[in-house]
Amino acid sequence: MTKTRLFYTAITILCIVCSIASLYIQNLYLLRVFILAAITAILALSVNILVGYTGQISLGHAGFFGIGAYMVGILNVNYHLSFWLCMVIAVLFSGLMGLILGLPTTKLKGHFLGIATLGFGVIVNGVLNNWMQVTGGPQGIRDIQSPTLFSIPLEYGNYFLGFIVACLSLLVLVIYLLIKSPVGRAWSCLKQDEITAYVTGIHVYRYKLLAFTLSGGIAGFAGALFAGYMTFISPDTFDLNQSISIITTVILGGSGTIAGPLLGTALLSFLNEWLRNFDELRLVIYGVILVAVIVFIPEGIYPFFKNKIISLFSRRKRVNQLKTSIDPHAGKDAVNE
């Protein structure tokens, strides 16, 4: 259990350091980049719950992101509810949408799940674009109130960044606890082999639904933060390209790990800024990255380099292991897989 304690300490220190550091960033441009990156990181972690830990593909995650943002926008602007109340409702509602999407789709696998989730994203985007009375259509929603936390106005980028870093750290902690718990074990089991999950008494559908709900809720949370920060939202932030770039982020960094999506976010945010002057080419490069990562390092950058480094340090140990790991039946089982 010392490992857990170590993780707690590391997260707490990192959280405090980042929050304090965020107060001293003078450069407004840099501040904006960091805040958007942190929101993307939350989004990537939410996709990772489905794609990485539960093995369920989601190609429509921008839908949840959009639902969260629009719930805040609509409730705040039209009904003048406070930002925090809007945020709670947004998280609950997008979690509920995750559950509703999960109900029919948990019985689907692979391709069909991909198509169904993609369809979900298209439907949400279609509704945002066309339900003029409520969503404002392509013009979107303006003048969303910036949140205030204990009389600290978060409309200042520094405070917002501090707040969002704290949220992100808390989320990382929660996900870590979940993954190390029986729930995480059940997820990893049904990801790798559903039949094993059945015979060990894991209620497969319930655990998939849990993953859908959590993932939807967290993506909605990211949406709510986005709305609170930008104070303006429009449907084209929540389109198919967004869904694809989230999943690219997760796969690039390494799905099924906590550090992977964070690393992916950092790399792609950096890339985005670097390509700022070639905005048309940004998505072209995303496309190339997605294909290249899947072809060359399908496990993602973080696990790839982690394994490289581990094997570098334990070369001697590996030689010993090789002696014992000669397995006369390995071939047979590989066929049976």
């Binding site: 593909i57 190609l59 692979g110 391709h111 991909g114 390209n241 694809i244 999943i247 690219t248 796969i251 048309e280 080419l281 940004r282 998505l283 072209v284 995303y286 496309g287 190339v288 990255i289 997605l290 294909v291 899947i294 072809v295 399908p298």
Partner: peptide, 19 residues
């Protein structure tokens, strides 16, 4: 590799070609 990887790869191709 897994069929899912091919599907993701095709998404990448799509984004690439469109943009």
């Amino acid at each position: 590799s897994e069929p899912l990887n091919m599907m993701l790869s095709s998404l990448g191709v799509s984004v690439f070609l469109v943009n």
